[in-house]
Nucleic acid binder design. Structure first.
Lengths: 245, 245, 245, 245
DNA sequence: CATGAATGAGCCTTCATTCAT
DNA sequence: TATGAATGAAGGCTCATTCAT
């Protein structure tokens, strides 16, 4: 039984290792640049072995995406447990988002790469479903916090707008910022561009605009961010510092 | 010389025709689904002829992108000439952006598709530079309006924020919204999602938050939008209505 | 020793079981569709175990064929013991042939499939020889009956023909009929085609033509056929009825 | 136009050449032994070129079969025009059959090889239909002659048998003989085996048995055969002698 | 100039066989 | 002895690019 477990463990480790390699290749060479021969060469396993883990190229890519999604999902879920008022919890999710992309900068680009090609036709159903579930649950976490805010009276959406507008705006700004960062668009003519800080500041103004209390003028969200980093994500940040500087 | 001119004209027309076909194919079948055989078949020109216009596949794709960029650049430039106060001119650019994506919905997706793959290594320098110039000039138009606003006293950026923050926020929200729309992400749990209207509303709140005057509470931007559509883009909208409903 | 015997028995049973599975797969999916992974899966033995019984894929297929041949050989041998005149014994062999293909319809197709591919280069010598022996002995049985007929005066081959001609004709007609049946050739334009009955009638005319006495006009071979079925092959037919209806 | 024609001619010639090579390979190495790399190597064309003529491996094989069928169809059709009584015309078809297999001995084996594997799923519809048409027309030719014989009173099928029985018997004996010959089954214990002559003699007895007049005892079919060879197939035989000895 | 057949490197995938556990 | 993961040669097919006509 011990033997069996070791085998299984090795099998799982190898799978992780292959996914790592695929992720890197996806980043460095794009969807087309990722090919099974190169994966075999990079991992120093044979092609046959690769195919024992993944039914086809698309399934391997789906596995890369799935891991990404699950990592983010876990971060979001933890962020939502942050003790404090609703806007603090949302802020913690913002930290989770920042963390996710700073610790796994690859993943943002991988998402871009992979959302574009028709991977899902060929990937295994199992992985497709898992990805969908993961995506949905991330969004649900944010929706949950916003609803809590409304219920508690912290959030009164301005006339003419809806909660969905708010969610859409948050999401769009986050996605857009990542896209800009990831695609390496040179912020022409910007002095001293620090996209992450820009995003933070814009989020603040945005939430204030939506009347989500307490306003940034009356509450020290910088401290909330700091607390979230220390209390919720200290471990992840430490890990990240180790592997990604 | 007349003969030469006619020839040149025909040559240019054919190039345009091929780019059209490539654009469509890129949309319908993705980067991988675009191949030179199909282009030749679709245009009813021979492959040899295609290669007389474009040095390689990537160069053809770059041409598709370039045309996209130039179309948007022209729209933005015209928007910036909108007569009115600075925030009205920015609003007109917003209309240009909306128009661009509603009239050429393809282009948003093409941008996604192509930004991801390493086209620029092989495309001709000429086209690469033209693309860069186009991108930069779009951004410059917006920057110009913002600077005018500051100069005229309409815009006083809040403490702790900069003009760059504002530009980044606008850009991120626009890009993010397009990404979400284009990737067909199902807005799970949203009632009645109309991304374009959501984007409009979020823009309004956002500019108010930045203290860009006159505020939306004191100025009828709905009318500004309507004027921009009628006075600046009437032609484009008419064209769009014809070909895209 | 008892242990050893049990082991040996189990080993032999497993071999039989694997051959069964291979036979089925050969039928359902053809030569190419048979592969060792699938065999392992179907039998629920590991590939290593399969390879302990068969040196290679071809050897396994040879084993399928060999069993086929041995089954037919046994039927022919029993048929030759049918008590009666020489032509009755030949008729009994005809019944054996009919029975073989009606009870094991699979085997006809397997023969087709396997005769075509170069299995014999790689199959073990042992099995190749056994197959050859089996084939030869079937033919020998028929030859024996024919020679007995000549010796007893029942058969006087017509001028210009030889005993070999007769054997060849019988064999060709049988093989040809099976081929036609097995390949599912649609008997275009035939009313009511019953290949087996057609073969029976043609055999009758054929033997009459060769002057093999007693002629079908003076002897009730329908009854001979019936007797052969009941007295010699009752068991097989019962078995067949059970599993193949 | 002359240029175009030459190109087309070369294209057609090359196609023929590839089919030749495929036929040989099919013979020498079987269905599995035929592969596109080897075809490319053998023809000294690139794989791409091969694929410009045939959509896939199966389509190439189908082309080999189609040519076979068309050759036989042409021979049968010519044989049916042989001037003489109905049984003479059938005899001429017998000569066509003999000729077909002696001139193109490959084709018999190719038929065996190819009937077994599922080629038709992937081959182009065009070729599949052409094959079916060819097959049907061969059979129709024989049926036509038999019906003429009945109409003219030359053939009165014996009690208990039908015209279909006769056709089936002829067909089976022919197919069976070819199978035996082609599979190289050693005619164990046969003295001096000449399968073609055996087949001839068996056919004679068979037709006599069916009361197809004039009987072989009252008509010199050897001469009919000779006439058919000289008057109908002289050219083919000369060609055959040239290319196949 | 236009054409489109030819090229061949490159890709995804399969599967018989081996061998460490 | 049984297992099944690992191997890697081999095969079908695609497609960007070239070049003779």
């Amino acid at each position: 039984m011990a033997t069996l477990n070791r085998r299984q463990r090795e099998f799982a480790q190898r799978e992780e290792f292959i996914i790592d390699a695929a992720g890197k290749m996806l980043l460095e060479r794009g969807y087309i640049g990722l090919n099974m021969d190169r994966i075999a060469e990079a991992t120093e396993y044979s092609k046959g072995t690769i195919y024992q883990h993944f039914t086809c190229k698309e399934d391997l890519i789906a596995a890369v995406i799935l891991r990404t999604i699950q990592v983010r999902g876990a971060l979001f879920a933890r962020a939502a447990t942050f003790p404090g008022r609703s806007r603090e919890r949302l802020t913690a999710i913002g930290v989770a988002d920042e963390l996710f992309y700073s610790v796994y900068p690859d993943h943002a680009r991988i998402e871009q790469v992979t959302k574009v090609e028709s991977i899902w036709d060929k990937a295994s159903d199992e992985r497709r479903n898992a990805c969908h579930t993961g995506d949905t649950s991330c969004m649900a976490v944010v929706q949950g916090v916003a609803r809590d805010a409304v219920a508690s009276g912290d959030l009164v959406v301005p006339q003419g707008c809806t909660l969905d507008d708010l969610l859409f705006g948050l999401w769009a700004m986050s996605v857009g910022a990542r896209t800009i960062i990831v695609q390496g668009v040179p912020l022409n003519g910007f002095e001293n561009p620090d996209p992450q800080m820009m995003l933070h500041r814009n989020f603040q103004l945005f939430l204030d605009g939506y009347n989500w209390k307490p306003f940034s003028t009356e509450w020290d969200y910088a401290r909330t961010i700091e607390r979230a980093r220390q209390e919720v994500f200290a471990n992840d940040i430490r890990k990240a510092g180790g592997s990604h500087a």
